[in-house]
Amino acid sequence: MSQRKGFYLLTLLVVLLPLLFPDNYFVTVVAVSAGLNAILAVSLNLLMGYAGQISLGHAAFFGMGAYTSAILTTKFAWNPWPAMVAGMILTGTIAFFMARPVLKLKGHYLAMATLGFGIIINIILVQAVGLTGGPDGLGEIPTLSFFGWQVDTDLRWYIVIGSCMLLVVWLALNLINSRSGRALRALHGSEVAAEMMGIDTTATKTGVFVMAALIASLAGSLFAHQQSFVSPDSCDFFFSIELVTMVVLGGMASTYGAVFGAIVLTFLPELLVVFEDFEVMIFGAILMSMMIFLPQGMFVGMQNLLQRLTHRRSALPGEDPNEPA
């Protein structure tokens, strides 16, 4: 099954990189960011790519996780683990109460509502200086430890985040090919028909919204401990947009596509640094041209191309390459 082969391939990649290039900046630093972004993109893709509910505010959930961990561990001296759980509970609860009114909206209105929500959260993080440290953020966040195994080197963080990413990818792949995953995809295809087949679409939408938020919160907590510093910039509107771009760039409704998009979008700016002043401009130009020439996303687009070349008729199981134009 290609689905599983893909997973082995990804695992192999994650394992081999640090062995082949130990102490390489791109592996131990950039790849760790890419891993976190991949977790976020995969979770957003569940909501956006599969269930068809666009969200321009996903970074807010990431921020909630990051800040809950940061605040509880630095200001209240909590152990990181319960802090992480507290972050997920808080984020999940907020997401749950947001989900109903927000997901009633469609299309651009939904985009606007999620965008507004993300900005509101960000403004609160900037303004509630007493709690969040305001624009300067919070520092000196302790690192994680697993039964005494301190995650205190870049390589160890690579291992932790790499495994988390693989876990999230594995869970997402399973979910999408399960009964609940079909329900998600079905409501994207036709909400009435999904209802008529017995799917409680409101509950399903709420469920996937909360689930995506929980994963984002987890990623946020990991981020906080890994960077040992959080600031409102790390979860602002631009980051939300960046996450959406990762999903779309890789190709909507493809878990591997989301991972791919996250990797490309994390590495690209690092590579463009050599262009100095031209960096921003070139980044914009690349983004535009990629979407113009591969509107289905790079990963999915290339996958389709490959398929056409090898004359295979059917798509990878569970990875729907495209929706009707």
């Binding site: 009964r179 079909r182 329900a183 995809r185 079905a186 994207h188 295809g189 036709s190 009435v192 028909a193 999904a194 008529m196 087949m197 017995g198 799917i199 409704a253 059917s314 798509a315 729907d320 929706e323 009707p324």
Partner: peptide, 21 residues
């Protein structure tokens, strides 16, 4: 009102939603 984003088999499998748990 088909699920055009899914395969033929997936479409009918969604139809089985209420028969599985």
């Amino acid at each position: 009102q088909l699920f055009f984003n899914m395969s033929v088999l997936d479409n009918v499998m969604v139809g089985c939603h209420l028969r599985s748990h």
